[in-house]
Design a protein around this nucleic acid. Structure first.
Lengths: 221, 221, 221, 221
DNA sequence: CATGAATGAGACTTCATTCAT
DNA sequence: TATGAATGAAGTCTCATTCAT
């Protein structure tokens, strides 16, 4: 009502535009893939015109990179900080990381980005290197360190950490891919309870599949 | 064999045309994805003209579906037959299935199909049910049965078989996806030795990650 | 002049705005041509925002016309006044006109206008008549009169004055065009020393190319 | 009527397409300039669709280069051959070159290309170098040689050949530019009789402007 | 007057598909 | 059947112009 109470709509929108565009872009990239997403559609979903999109991101490729940076990279950072601050067992940390990832990633469209990258990486070498540097290498490093610590503490068997790290990451990726491909289709036969699947997978990796005569799976849990 | 069987070369080629087209299409779809594969390039690689491609497949979509249908379904069957004929331990059968799959699939372009399907199912709704019915459900069933038998024989711990089956399949899919995405790019930081990664993953799943005070990992190996 | 004349800086700038915009536009039109000059760049170079440009000129077309009008017309006037005040030989006047034009035009961006006009007249029909009336006819008249006087005074051979006028103007235009086209490109093979080229051309026009057995070129020089 | 008399319309058109496209492109480039000519319009004028244009020329820039090559470069070659075969006076050769150029270039749209190049050369550095190499340097060389020969034969005064060459070329360029800029506009005041203008200019250059007491302009004419 | 965020027509180019030969 | 010239819809991106502030 007063002049002070008119918070410059134009200005406010300018500040929220990038976020709105990234949200729209993430959804569409995940739904259709990078090549099949038309930039005009991204703009439309964000409620702006084609030209406005290019005011904020100079090309579709840069838009994609921005999505990765804003939606993915910092998720890794969360895990890194959690690991740094952890003082319980390594096994418990793994369970916690998995749980956080489940809550913060798998249930959000962000998890779908990996599908897109896998699908189009060969056509966009720049994006490939960018994604590897920003996401994959940090994620590898995070899990590798946790494992290394677990081995050093005598918690874990002594195994090649990098490959075990992949074994830990693989099921999460697998779930994410599933959820944003078949899981998003109205079909039957592949329903998956992600939470229980992840739990099982981790139990398995930690305890092994083979029956152990006397040892209960994980004592310090 | 008989003297009468002297078909003109043109005739013989005509009969193999569809196969040649599917081979070319498989390679290109895996390499570039669906959208980025130009139909002219498929024709060229198959040694025919653009028009000829359309004589056999009425659209790029139909060609894509035909590739999926023709290249995938039979791969599962190999495993099923092996399992039916098996009389050793379930753990050994799992190792054998993994090994065969590695040799017969992961090293062939067929493994790349899964990447493409994952990327495109949402754009081709009627592909989803087909692929699930023809490929995913049979594969699930195969592993589920092997696990079930192992539990019944007292070899394995009693765990939810369907989820464990996924845990076994996941790393193979993971490797296949990697090989046809990042693995095919000239980038650094994600090199992977597929054979050893798979071996580690399986060791882990069978033996567990946690140190077992007295039990050696897998006795009947 | 008076003490009362202390206009605020903003006010003074406001009054010079149009001129600053025309200066910027001239430079850019000459450098890039009409189509390739972006109106935002003009505004930027003039130190104002895009919107402000449209406050003064309703469209890029009108801005272009204003540049032509403001930058060209007065150049001819200098020559007219010089000719009116001259009392030496017609040949010397021609040399002097050439020399002044060289100093006052060829070395300034104004010379580039002709290039732009030549390139764009057909896209701006109403520019044609304006430019012809304001620039070309006066320039023709100036040279025609000098020649006429030279013929009447017995200095020059009796030749069709209008065509000879063109012959005199042509090399200057030629130099101006060169300087603002090829001369501004980092290419090799067309370097030109404008001053000596003009001198040679005029010597030639005055003295002729053919060897004259006994007459030295220009006695009253 | 017979099968032999059906000369494959499709085939015949394929052969004439490039020429039709170049003709259309030349006209439009000259009329509107390079940037302002839309590739669709070129196609339309050649009677084909947008896509067809790109079947023959991969970009607008390549189309332009093709126009220059086909329409301009070889015109220079005609002059070179004429000069090589000449055995009359150098002055007569110059008149002949001018005359041929008048008939073969000035009266055709080809002469307009120079206008376009001058106008847009700064935005397309590639084109600049291409045009200089293909057109300007050969043209310079042609005139320089003729002049050199004339000087050696004692026909011409000893003057800097390169600059005199430019003096000879300038009026032709000048005419060409005029014809395709103001000359193509429905305006009054700048009509030009090109043939007589060129003749006058050449007379002037050969004979000089100054009155020669005793020598008639050109004896061996 | 001045700003600059927003618009949307339109440019170049690609490519799945058609069809005359 | 087989070809490949031709088409035209559609995609990315640019930029002159507008208008709320």
């Amino acid at each position: 009502m007063s002049a002070a109470a008119t918070p410059a709509l134009r200005q406010r929108r300018k500040e929220t535009r990038p976020q709105e565009l990234l949200d729209a872009a993430l959804d569409l990239f995940v739904e259709k893939g990078f090549a099949a997403t038309r930039s005009e559609e991204v703009a439309q979903r964000a409620g702006v015109s084609k030209g406005t999109l290019y005011l904020y991101y100079p090309s579709k490729e840069e838009l994609f990179k921005a999505v990765v940076r804003q939606k993915i990279s910092n998720l890794i950072q969360v895990g890194v900080e959690m690991a740094d601050a952890w003082d319980g067992s390594a096994a418990a940390l793994l369970r916690e990381l998995m749980s956080v990832w489940w809550a913060r990633v798998l249930n959000t469209p962000a998890a779908g980005i990996h599908k897109v990258v896998i699908a189009e990486v060969r056509n966009f070498p720049d994006l490939a290197q960018f994604y590897v540097d920003e996401v994959m290498i940090p994620a590898d490093a995070l899990f590798t360190q946790v494992l290394q610590r677990g081995i050093e503490r005598g918690e874990f068997r002594s195994l090649p950490v990098r490959e075990v790290a992949h074994a830990l990451i693989a099921p999460m990726i697998f779930m994410a891919l599933h959820r944003h491909s078949f899981g998003a289709c109205p079909i039957h036969g592949v329903e998956l309870d992600a939470a229980s699947a992840l739990r099982t997978h981790l139990d398995l990796l930690l305890g092994g599949l083979l029956r152990q005569p006397d040892a209960s799976a994980e004592k310090g849990r």
